Simulated assay, not measured.
Amino acid sequence: MSYTTVMKGIVLTAALLITACAQSPQAIKLAPTFAAPTQQNGGQSPVHVRVSDQRANKVLGSRGGAYRETAVITLANDLSLPVEKALSSYMAKMGYDVDSLNPATADLHVIFTSLVYDHPKEDGVGYDMDMSATVEVEARRGNEHYQGRYRIKRNQKFFNAPSGAQNTTLVNELVTEVLESMFSDPKLVAFLQKS
């Protein structure tokens, strides 16, 4: 076998390895879904739901690989609208009178300040993904107001890099989880249930 043939084989093998280690960018469609609420304790309390995206960094993270700086994960759609729609529907099922014209309606403003889904740079056994989401809540009714901050943080290990479909599922579950955590705050729930 000639030197040229050997060199071509080495170059081809190296190119294949680099390609195998590369991850392409991904834009995730946000469409969070909630399980049926275990309690319907809204008591027909009137509430208006608003969601804002005030994240300083719109990139969720990197898929990793040889070119992690370009293998970024972003959202394919606006965060506010699909989250607002899903949250309003969930609260209606909980028994709240959503988008009521009642003058005693509470304004629930949910502000996303952080959403992270990232493969850390460190190499190790398996494939880690760091996940976190932070929301701030401003609830107002007349001269009364309540503020809260809710954060979910976890790390999940995979044997191989998660697929695009897995990434989409995990990001949507993360968004749902941080929103559900708001309703574990008895002070917020009590504020919303006033009429």
Rank of each mutant, 00 (worst) to 15 (best):
P162Y: 04
L75N: 03
V178N: 04
G64C: 09
T38E: 03
P32D: 12
G42M: 02
K157C: 05
L174Y: 09
A86G: 03
S62G: 04
L188P: 12
Q23H: 10
A36C: 05
F183N: 07
Q23I: 07
A27E: 09
R55H: 01
G148N: 05
V51D: 05
A190T: 08
K8S: 15
H145F: 12
I73A: 11
M94R: 12
R50L: 03
P82C: 08
V49M: 06
L16T: 10
N155C: 12
Y90G: 00
D185T: 02
S132N: 01
L101D: 15
N77I: 11
P162M: 02
L12D: 15
N172W: 02
K85I: 12
L179V: 12
T134I: 01
V11F: 13
S89P: 03
A161S: 13
D97Y: 03
T176R: 02
Q40I: 10
L101R: 14
L174I: 10
F159T: 10
V59F: 13
P82G: 07
S88V: 00
T33C: 11
K121C: 03
A35D: 15
E69G: 13
H48K: 00
G95K: 00
D78Y: 11
L170K: 06
V98C: 01
G9W: 14
V11Y: 13
E138G: 01
Q156D: 14
T5V: 09
